[in-house]
């Protein structure tokens, strides 16, 4: 068993557990096989995805020993990193709300997974770091652009160059996380937030909202406005058909 990520669905919410305790090191950059992930997320009734770590830690990131083993054995590391990227892009491509419930250690690749989520909720005891530069490496799974995306360039440079460990409070201050709450209620609080957001609307509308919100980040405002109009028109036509057929 080389991949250690589990999946469970509760009331339409997919719960992904990074399961390699105690530190939940990522055995491979592709921390869940893409084919497996596609199967899990292919469920059209899915309304959101919550990612957390088994036990006391979110994830300590890539396993350095394993990483250098890969390089030493002549396997193609670049290809493996690309596979890791693809997993993250696939998660984002579901256009479902992604929440990371984070506690304990959230380093390197673990941080990069958390940063791919829309909402990051951290327990008071969480520690964050991008320690790659201490090992003469750089963040390899999106950290170089997702850290500054959240914190701005100045804080991202400090964090990546120094490899310093930040506590939850500091991470909150630089906008790395959105909320800090007591460790004991981390999971239930995160699940409740997701449930509250998605319980009364259909997966179709959820995906439309998330897509529109993301477009605002990735497109010019003119493009985003055009896309918004296109999506709105589709939904309006569907709603009109539904209403007129109900009235017959």
């Amino acid at each position: 068993m080389s991949h250690r990520t589990e999946w469970e669905v509760r009331d339409g919410i997919g719960i992904m557990t990074i399961n390699n305790p105690p530190e939940n090191y990522l055995f491979e950059p592709e921390f869940v096989p893409l084919t497996q992930l596609k199967q899990w997320t292919g469920d059209p009734s899915l309304k959101g995805i919550l990612i957390h770590g088994k036990g006391k830690h979110f994830s300590a990131g890539g396993d350095l020993k394993r990483l250098f083993e890969i390089v030493g054995s002549g396997e193609d590391l670049e290809e493996k990193l690309a596979a890791g990227h693809e997993v993250i892009y696939h998660l984002q491509g579901t256009k479902l709300p992604l929440i990371a419930a984070i506690q304990g250690v959230c380093f390197g690749g673990g941080l990069e997974i958390a940063l791919a989520c829309h909402i990051r909720i951290a327990a008071e005891n969480t520690l964050f770091a991008a320690p790659e530069s201490c090992h003469s490496l750089i963040p390899g799974m999106g950290g170089t652009f997702r850290i500054p995306g959240s914190t701005g360039m100045a804080k991202a440079l400090q964090m990546i160059l120094s490899g310093d460990v930040l506590n939850a409070e500091e991470a909150f201050r630089i906008h790395l996380v959105d909320e800090i709450i007591p460790r004991k209620t981390l999971f239930s609080h995160s699940l409740e937030l997701m449930t509250r957001m998605v319980k009364n609307i259909s997966p179709r509308i959820i995906r439309a909202v998330v897509e529109t919100l993301e477009n605002a980040n990735t497109m010019t405002s003119e493009e985003a406005a055009r896309e918004e109009s296109r999506i709105f028109c589709q939904l309006a036509k569907e709603e009109y058909t539904r209403r007129t057929s109900e009235n017959k």
Partner: peptide, 17 residues
């Protein structure tokens, strides 16, 4: 969203900003 629609005049972007 409670009418099976989304805000259609830039509301999501401005709200997020």
């Amino acid at each position: 969203t409670t009418f099976n629609l989304i805000p259609g005049i830039g509301g999501i972007r401005r709200f997020a900003n």
